[in-house]
Design a binder for these strands. Structure first.
Length: 368
DNA sequence: TCTGGGGTCCTTATCCTC
DNA sequence: TCTGGAGGATAAGGACCC
């Protein structure tokens, strides 16, 4: 097999990729539409009730000063800052703001890849402007048109553009060039790399003494592959050097559709769980119809009080979108779980999706 | 004391067929 | 006929992302 540096050589065409990342997006939208919240700690998450189960989706910068951050339990956030304003997640409002921002980005390039409501990659390789000047213009446009601030990273690929956007948040443009890549990456924690989360970071530190991206660059390919497997090891060997040739993906098809819910109070009652599965299955079927898909595999997920999570799945002979059949399949799968402990979460997923062509709407950026 | 929801992708095990 | 793979499909779990 060819070594990575031979397969991804310098002759690869130079690209200019922007990563646009909105600052504290959900909280910023709330502060924009409710001026009395500006300058105050705002926490968006769950039902907006800080005494019920849920986690922080976004904390305003004022709330972050109290140590509140995304994914923190709402109850913990409340303990850190009881006078913060807690708000429920309002996806329709954030979706409207997001569509406005994505439309601005598409004025600058047709090659836009939304990653989530508040982030997108943009390939501006064919634009004549100096990249930094262009990024500054886009940042100003977003602010003038929407009142929201964005941080923009510039890089020769998606990996470096995304790392760049995170370096000087909020409201900043940051560029990483091939010449500055080594110096910029060297002292960053390994967790800035795509795919390196808490578990992998701990393994890298314990087995190889690796903490920074620079540390990682000193590990031979074979050693990374031994620890992480052949594929993952090679990926990390390349990404820690800032190498990435993944393309901008403008059209995306879902692989699965799912719904899940966490009970406010754990339950062992079979009838309660069956009712939940039926309701979740109905929601998923609604999504299948709305988006024009059938699916072949039905999966039920159960999370017990101790947070251990199990799934049971059944693959059907043909893809279906029939509500009764999907609901009955999901309910039948419950028999394969031991309900010997309290359950905190139930989920239903349908995967193996195929298009029916009968959706409410084809995707917005499909060919005319 | 806690730990959401909606996704993707990878690894491993098992079964089956060629 | 026996045996040993290769390799696809399925199932389950886990890590990770926003």
């Amino acid at each position: 097999m060819a070594a990575p540096e031979e397969r991804y050589g310098r002759e690869t065409m130079t690209r200019t990729i922007l990563h646009v990342d909105m600052d504290a997006f959900f909280a910023a939208v709330e502060q924009l539409r409710r001026p009395e919240l500006r300058g105050k700690p705002v926490v968006v998450g769950g039902s907006g009730n800080p005494h019920s189960r849920g986690v922080v989706s976004t904390a305003s910068y004022e709330a972050r000063a109290y140590g509140i951050h995304s994914a923190m339990p709402l109850r913990t956030a409340f303990n850190k800052c009881p006078h913060a304003v807690f708000l429920p997640v309002d996806f329709s409002a954030y979706g409207a703001a997001s569509r406005q921002i994505m439309a601005i980005l598409r004025e600058y390039s047709p090659l836009v890849e939304p990653l989530s409501l508040d982030e997108a990659f943009l390939d501006v390789s064919s634009r004549p402007e100096v990249p930094r000047a262009l990024a500054e213009e886009i940042r100003r446009r977003i602010k003038d048109d929407t009142g929201l601030t964005a941080s923009i990273g510039i890089g020769p690929n998606k990996l470096l553009a995304k790392i760049a956007s995170g370096l000087h948040k909020p409201d900043a443009v940051t560029e990483i060039t091939p010449d500055t890549t080594t110096a910029v990456l060297r002292d960053l924690p390994a967790t800035v790399l795509w795919g390196v989360g808490p578990k992998t970071a701990a393994r890298l530190e314990q087995t190889l003494g690796v903490r920074t991206v620079g540390d990682l660059q000193r590990i031979p390919l074979a050693q990374l592959q031994e620890l992480l497997g052949p594929r993952w090891g090679e990926d990390l060997y390349r990404t820690c050097r800032g190498e990435d040739d993944s393309p901008i993906v403008t059209d995306w098809e879902p692989k699965s559709l799912s719904r899940e819910t966490t009970y406010q109070y754990d339950t062992r009652r079979r009838e309660t769980i069956i009712a939940t599965i039926s309701a979740l299955a109905a929601d998923v079927v609604g999504d299948l119809h709305d988006e024009g898909y059938r699916g072949r595999t039905v999966t039920v997920k159960i999370r017990y009080r101790d947070f251990r999570t199990h799934t049971r799945a059944l693959t059907l002979p043909e893809p279906i979108n029939d509500g009764d059949a999907i609901r009955q399949t999901a309910v039948a799968l419950l028999d394969r779980f031991a309900l010997d402990r309290p359950v905190r979460l139930v989920g239903v997923r349908v995967s193996g999706l195929v298009k029916t062509g009968n959706g409410k709407q084809e995707t917005g950026n499909a060919e005319p």
